[in-house]
Lab assay of single mutants.
Amino acid sequence: MSIQHFRVALIPFFAAFCLPVFAHPETLVKVKDAEDQLGARVGYIELDLNSGKILESFRPEERFPMMSTFKVLLCGAVLSRVDAGQEQLGRRIHYSQNDLVEYSPVTEKHLTDGMTVRELCSAAITMSDNTAANLLLTTIGGPKELTAFLHNMGDHVTRLDRWEPELNEAIPNDERDTTMPAAMATTLRKLLTGELLTLASRQQLIDWMEADKVAGPLLRSALPAGWFIADKSGAGERGSRGIIAALGPDGKPSRIVVIYTTGSQATMDERNRQIAEIGASLIKHW
């Protein structure tokens, strides 16, 4: 067993022997301040990774656009098919120029040779490549099948209805392509620590998230040296922004954090800054 596999296998073990965790309302004060600064709703939840206990939450059962955070769930569904012998990570998928959609920095470079399922998941999570996500959605049967996968996990809230990039439209009061912070946090925890996926697939999923290259201005910008984070960000229309993450000190994750916002007129930089400040408060009061 590799060191990384050992780390993920012992996530519940280490967490069980940690000192009790206590909620700190100071972080919620910052979440509410972010709402004021952005002029928009902000949803927040913080779960203990081992027990699933909610440590703090704000608007945990209000719907927010998922945006690209759905790509972690998508690759979880792909990995479940791999575990069941219905898919192979090494299978190569070929596609054409007509398949390319807006923001496809990886797939646009491989029109000639195609990409493997493993490479597509890596591109979808680490670079948020939209064509990679659409190609992977095709392998599982489309958005409705991802929703069905989530329902089978016990998540009857999260739903995907459309493809990239239309799913980022974020129309107010439109339930399409949305989740709730509580539902997303619980589902992410199941994917990373539950028995739904094999140990190898859980490790692969967290490795992809740990290698995320496009979430630097968010929670990662607030992390002290030595902290662990595996995350996936999302951005959408109407001032929408979000991030889902597993993080913790001492090089291992111990909490799940989900943050979503929508309806702001603020710039992307300002949305990023507010999420980073929430992260800084979380870490300060850990």
Rank of each mutant, 00 (worst) to 15 (best):
V31D: 14
D33G: 01
G39I: 01
A40V: 06
A40L: 04
R41E: 14
E46I: 10
E46D: 08
L47F: 00
D48G: 00
L49G: 08
N50D: 05
S51H: 03
S51G: 11
G52K: 07
I54T: 09
I54A: 07
S57F: 11
F58T: 11
R63S: 02
F64Q: 08
F64P: 12
M67W: 08
M67I: 08
F70I: 05
V72S: 04
L73H: 09
G76R: 04
A77R: 10
L79V: 04
V82Y: 00
R92D: 07
Y95K: 00
S96V: 04
Q97M: 03
P105V: 03
T107F: 07
H110T: 15
T112P: 11
R118K: 04
L120G: 08
T126H: 02
T126S: 11
T131N: 13
A133L: 04
N134I: 07
N134S: 06
L135R: 05
L137T: 06
T139M: 07
I140M: 15
G142R: 08
P143A: 08
P143W: 14
E145L: 05
E145V: 06
L146I: 05
L150M: 15
M153Y: 14
M153T: 11
H156C: 06
T158Y: 01
T158Q: 06
D161Q: 05
R162G: 12
R162H: 14
R162C: 01
L167E: 08
L167I: 14
N168S: 06
E175C: 09
R176N: 13
T179G: 12
A183G: 07
A183R: 07
A185F: 06
T186H: 07
L191N: 05
T193F: 05
T193I: 02
E195T: 11
E195Y: 00
L197R: 08
T198P: 06
L199C: 01
A200L: 11
R202C: 08
Q203W: 10
M209D: 06
K213I: 00
K213G: 03
V214E: 00
G216I: 06
L218K: 07
S221E: 01
L223A: 03
L223S: 04
P224S: 07
P224W: 15
A225S: 01
A225N: 07
A225W: 00
A225F: 03
F228M: 09
I229P: 01
G236E: 07
G239W: 06
S240I: 12
R241I: 08
I244S: 14
A246K: 02
G248M: 06
K252M: 04
K252Y: 02
P253I: 05
P253A: 12
V257P: 02
Y260C: 00
T261H: 10
T262H: 10
G263V: 07
S264R: 05
S264I: 05
Q265H: 12
R273G: 11
I275Y: 08
E277R: 14
G279L: 07
